[in-house]
């Protein structure tokens, strides 16, 4: 009896010791990642659940907190606000569908240009990158000024070439075009990351191609592009996520919605519902719809990512 107990006791003790050892081995890792765990809980997990809960309430932060079931979702999908919501989502999608591929291709080409091995390339890199260091607000205000119907530089250029001036941000037909046009000036923004991706391509591949007599174009299509697909993929994903949340239209429209709401995008709509009309519940429902859309689109991009090469590390 006694022995058995002792055996049992020693087994328990042994287990306790391994558990202690296990904890001690993991202690450093736990402590180092503790800020992240806390941050994920406080600033991501709780808010995301809370926001889902709010989306079923009428909530204005002061007097009203009333459970209304699916009313918020009904209102935005087919209720009184559905026409505006459809317009807002439609405009944002149109913007994303045009901007994402356009900037991806152009920023890639610009990076390839700035990767060329010619004298003085570093100066060109700096010159092309500097405009991207202008803070977003300032850049938007400068563009508002440049696109001004009467005092802007673009209409002056058009008129100098004998073309008729465009209304740019002041007409509903051209407002979206103006936003996309303005976005083109951000193509050098990803330069540092692209150049890093190009530099990661082993130079031995290019040397081997040289020996085989491959030209510049051939090397570009058969080495540079395939080996920078992981960066293309990264830019594609962040581009989709970012363009659906674009907020600069708010500044471009001077805090308004643009002519006939042509600059009224999802992020602006959510901002106005939440922080100007204090419809916190309704804004949460809108935000959740956007979240689901982004999650679906991102997983679609990931599902079709067989073309991505991640290097030997895997």
């Amino acid at each position: 009896m006694r022995r058995k107990l002792q055996v049992n006791g020693s087994v328990v003790e042994y287990n306790r010791r391994t558990f202690k050892k296990f904890l001690l081995d993991n202690l450093a890792g736990m402590l180092f990642t503790l800020p992240l765990v806390l941050g994920l809980i406080i600033f991501s997990a709780i808010p995301i659940i809370q926001s889902l809960i709010y989306s079923f309430y009428r909530y204005d932060m002061t007097t009203t907190l009333e459970f209304i079931g699916f009313d918020n979702y009904a209102n935005l999908l087919w209720g009184y606000d559905s026409a505006e919501v459809r317009g807002v989502f439609g405009r944002t999608f149109l913007y994303a569908i045009i901007t994402v591929p356009l900037t991806l291709v152009l920023s890639y080409l610009v990076a390839v240009l700035l990767h060329q091995n010619v004298k003085g390339i570093k100066t060109f890199r700096v010159l092309c990158y500097l405009p991207c260091l202008i803070p977003g607000v300032v850049s938007a205000l400068v563009w508002r000024s440049m696109l001004d119907q009467d005092y802007g530089i673009f209409n002056a250029i058009l008129q100098a070439f004998g073309l008729s001036p465009i209304k740019w941000l002041e007409a509903k037909e051209t407002a979206m075009f103006s936003m996309i046009f303005m976005g083109l000036w951000g193509v050098s923004g990803g330069m540092i990351l692209w150049l890093a991706a190009f530099n990661n391509i082993p130079s031995t591949l290019y040397e081997a191609a040289d020996i085989d007599g491959a030209g510049r174009v051939r090397k570009f299509f058969n080495i540079t592009i395939p080996l920078s697909t992981s960066m293309i993929f990264y830019n594609l994903v962040t581009g989709v996520i970012g363009s659906l949340q674009v907020f600069s239209t708010f500044i471009m429209a001077g805090g308004g919605d643009g002519p006939e709401k042509s600059l009224y995008f999802i992020a602006v709509k959510i901002y106005k519902e939440a922080f100007q009309r204090w419809n916190m519940g309704y804004a949460s429902a809108l935000a959740w719809v956007l979240f689901v859309v982004i999650a679906i689109l991102t997983s679609m991009v990931f599902k079709t990512s067989k073309w991505v090469y991640y290097g030997e590390e895997g």
Binding site: F43, S44, I46, P47, I48, Q50, S51, Y54, I241, L244, Q245, A267, I270, Y271, A274, M280, A283, S284, A287, W288, L290, F291, I294
Partner: peptide, 8 residues
Amino acid sequence: PGVVIQIP
């Protein structure tokens, strides 16, 4: 999306 967690 930043806007989802913004309100809570």
